[in-house]
Design a protein around this nucleic acid. Structure first.
Lengths: 162, 162
DNA sequence: ACAGAATTGTTATGGTAGTGAACTATTCCG
DNA sequence: CGGAATAGTTCACTACCATAACAATTCTGT
């Protein structure tokens, strides 16, 4: 708690800190993470000016495309979306004719989710736009190897939660 | 656009994709970034249950502590906060007696921002709690070297925007 | 010096997400 | 069968972010 004079024990968790230990924002993981994420999402939004599509909608369509027939709760849970919030999201996709709820076979409570024909065409174009966006990111990182390293590091933070 | 049968040109930007090119969420940079950021912020919030303090407030206090006397617009701009939204944020810190607006010397329009005495004590405790949080993150990453690698990769995405 | 442009802080307002509680219909289970 | 659990939905509430407008002040060019 005293003034200056010692400097050995600093630098354990945070990066450069001033005499009082207050960290510089540039060295804080959460801060950098947030800034990077906002920029990536903005680039995503810009990339999809033509469609348009928000990140959450993209993830829902991609998941339905890969695993059609899952019920709403499953899709929502896999994406970390509360089922209450998922309703209006799915309403929007249905209103646009991209996806649809079907009465699930065995369970009259649940809906199984599928793409429509139009949804399939939409997803094809969506994937093209996404690839351009993702390629831009990979380039900024310096290559696919760096992309993999970044994903691996983020996975360590995310841990078992997949 | 045809069916299966070719596979050479895939894997340019995105990771594993199915036959139609739809990416798996686990390989998407923006998705992982968002998930990791949400988890980090949640851990931050939990770490500050005792104070309590939100990430944006933390960043403002840390910046004022390191560079007292800056005017509102400067602090807001450095943190990427619109000055309109900064007002209520600063109101809260002032109401809690942690920071204060002083009439700037040369310019009667602007306010220079400073910590109060209580604010200094608060920041000292805040830094302790933050270090525990950050240490937890560094541990999950596998060490300080991995932290540095992550920051470096995120900086590539952020680019010149600091 | 003075008029017009720019800056600072502020208010008001709207949009978008995300949360928890409560409700209906249905299914599960003892 | 009857109570507990589940799926989807609605609702009220909050947090956050953006834009536009405004008053006070400062800057700038002539």
């Amino acid at each position: 708690m005293a003034g200056p004079g010692r400097q050995s024990k600093l630098e354990q968790a945070g990066g450069p800190a001033d005499a009082s230990g207050v960290p510089e924002m540039a060295t804080i993981i959460g801060y950098k993470l947030r800034r990077a994420q906002l920029l990536v999402f903005q680039d995503f939004i810009d990339s999809f000016a033509e469609l348009p599509l928000r990140p959450a909608e993209f993830s829902v369509l991609a998941l339905i495309a890969r695993t059609p027939g899952l019920k709403q709760s499953d899709i929502a849970a896999r994406l970390g979306i509360k089922r209450a919030n998922f309703v209006s999201l799915m309403d929007g996709l249905e209103r646009r004719g991209l996806a649809e709820r079907r009465k699930a076979a065995g369970d009259k409570r649940s809906h199984s989710l599928h793409l429509t024909e139009q949804g399939n065409r939409f997803v094809a174009r969506m994937v093209e736009l996404w690839q351009a966006h993702e390629q831009r990111l990979v380039d900024s990182l310096g290559g696919a190897a760096e992309r993999d390293r970044l994903i691996a590091l983020l996975d360590r933070i995310i841990g078992a939660k997949g």
